[in-house]
Design a protein around this nucleic acid. Structure first.
Lengths: 351, 351
DNA sequence: TCGACGTTTGGGACCGCTCCCAAGGCACGG
DNA sequence: CCGTGCCTTGGGAGCGGTCCCAAACGTCGA
């Protein structure tokens, strides 16, 4: 039984009872028009005489009316929310403060669209199953998917469910099935490695991200193209984006006993680990080894010395993703859309 | 005009048309009961015969039915969502990866409650006004408020609107009006400074957070208590939680020309900046100056050497906050609830 | 002046669920 | 054997919007 209405005899500062929210009918009555007209006024005002539109807007202002999203969603047959899906295998994303930019930007861009952001994560494979159930059960109107691995089982379910989806990054092997927004990984990596060469470094090693991700693979490709024939596999190690793996990869290269005077790391975050390994091995940065990262996350500024890196336009990526998702959800666009954004080299003192 | 139904003659893998979602009536029909009974079964199953409950559940499983939240929300007269509010003045929060733990945990805890998480930020004061309008206009059922400053105008509006709210941290000056979840800042700071003293350090400086926040003030108080009569204002500087301010504060103390052999910094993030300043001044950590942070964020591991710090139970805080908010929203609890969580000292190599 | 046609407007029929009331069942005691 | 009261159950009345159809109203050309 809910708490009975409590009414204190001499409570401090008599709080006015919460007024029930005005409805569209209240507005209609005050403006002297019908419900239908108010509804039209609310939705763009097409086919409503300017004078009527004005009086409806006056009534709305007078009553402090705001539309009831639940009712609108029910009537429109949509849920009003969009899921931001991060599968646990990308848990490292949470370590990287930049992902917060996604949440912030999504939420900001979604609000004027009358949609909410649902942040969802799958702890493990069985939860990923549940997550798939949840998403395809019609609880959301669309999905924003963070950097999926190519074997993501979610991908096939999303395709089958025909749920509007935008992928952040390029879904390797599923490029044609999804809309996606990404940066030109290959070119960006090419640019920064070229910068390294331009400063006189000749033996450039790299610690890549996972090669089954578009970012990991693309950045390695750009590195390889910049080096051309002097590409040497002995200078290549692989990580999984985590800081720790950056350290391990660097240690592996060091153990091989080959000389190198520069290191391109697949992410700023891994670069922090890499620098720790270098320092422990007695190499100073940048004197002995120039280090370059990728992403321009706050980690790049935490590094000592601050990292030379590639600015990854996360915010722009998020804005584009929402724009595309809106097109998809509105049905204005049927076939997948692909956007490639450009990046910028940020030179600091590590290279 | 929406895209006309497209039906490719020989498309790859004929996609089945999206079936309309089953409704509660479909379930009722299949189970041979009425809508009302299904609704009861859906909501705890009270006053439903076990046999009937079972057949309803069978029907639900057979149809793959899931409740339509929009309809439920409309009928129940609630919005189904909860706002996580971060005002821009705490923008630095976004720099700190730990805040992602909040989003992740909130979303996970809210899901079984049938509620969504809305992440909202106010860019500036005028937007904060709009945010206040939005929140109090009945778009959300409750609010989770991140670490407000004591002069937060939002606070008074939230109190007036009687919107269920839980504050993360203690709202200085508004303790009695809100529910909140926090750690024992004072004791935690006391403990870590005592640890510093225990390692033989005698002159301990500090860079605090903003003193108009409960965390900034509480941590300074704990520092002062640990030092007792040897507390010396010349060893105290203030920051705003940002990495940069940690650097500035440390530089200020260094410029004063007083000697110190340990530094307690109000957050790991600021501690990174502090260590940069120390290093530039030629002091090594921990040989010349032991450094302790606060929060145990990933930044603590990025630091070189890794930071000794206080583990801040962000996840536990988030879980508690949602639990309390649920009580409030359900009306099971009318008066504000306060929870204080304990922390743990994490000793690494910086001190 | 009249008919055709485009623009506005009102209002009924939902959207899918919860809530509540009244009716039917059933066990139990007198 | 019947009345009483609790447990179950059905179904009507919303919740607050959108959408669509038909009626009312103009405008314009013949």
């Amino acid at each position: 039984m809910p708490a009975p209405e409590l009414r204190r005899a001499h409570g401090p500062a008599p709080v006015p009872p919460r007024r029930p929210r005005p409805t569209i009918d209240d507005v209609a009555r005050l403006a002297g028009v019908s419900r239908g007209t108010v509804s039209r006024a609310l939705n763009g005002g097409r086919n409503v005489r300017p004078a009527v539109l004005a009086s409806v807007n006056d009534a709305i202002a007078a009553l402090d009316y705001t539309v009831n999203q639940a009712a609108r969603n029910l009537a429109r047959g949509r849920t009003g929310s969009v899921a931001f899906v991060i599968s646990e295998r990308q848990e490292h994303l949470f370590e990287d403060p930049n992902w917060g930019v996604f949440v912030k930007t999504f939420s900001r861009e979604l609000r004027p669209l009358g949609r909410h952001l649902l942040v969802t994560t799958a702890q493990d494979t069985s939860e990923e199953q549940l997550l798939g159930d949840y998403l395809t059960a019609g609880h959301v109107d669309g999905v924003l998917l963070a950097l999926p691995y190519d074997d993501e089982p979610l991908l096939s379910r999303l395709v089958a469910s025909r749920l509007p989806t935008v992928v952040l990054g390029r879904p390797l092997g599923w490029e044609a099935a999804f809309s996606w927004v990404m940066i030109d990984e290959e070119q960006s990596a090419f640019d920064i490695v070229t910068h390294l060469l331009g400063t006189g470094r000749t033996r450039i090693a790299t610690v890549t991200g996972p090669l089954h991700t578009s970012s990991g693979k693309g950045r390695l490709d750009g590195y390889a193209r910049a080096l051309g024939p002097s590409f040497d596999p002995v200078l290549v190690a692989h990580g999984d984006w985590s800081m720790h793996s950056g350290r391990l990869g660097t240690e592996q290269i060091l153990e091989r006993g080959v000389e190198f005077d520069a290191l391109f790391v697949g992410s700023d975050h891994m670069a922090i680990g890499a620098m720790q390994a270098l320092r422990e091995a007695g190499r100073s940065v940048p004197a002995d080894v120039a280090v370059a990262g990728f992403d321009d996350s706050v980690a790049a500024l935490m590094a000592d010395p601050p990292l030379t890196t590639v600015h990854n336009p996360f915010e722009e990526t998020a804005v584009e993703a929402v724009r595309i998702l809106d097109e998809l959800m509105a049905g204005r666009q049927a076939s997948p859309l692909h956007v490639v954004l450009s990046t910028e080299l940020v030179v600091r003192s590590s290279a």
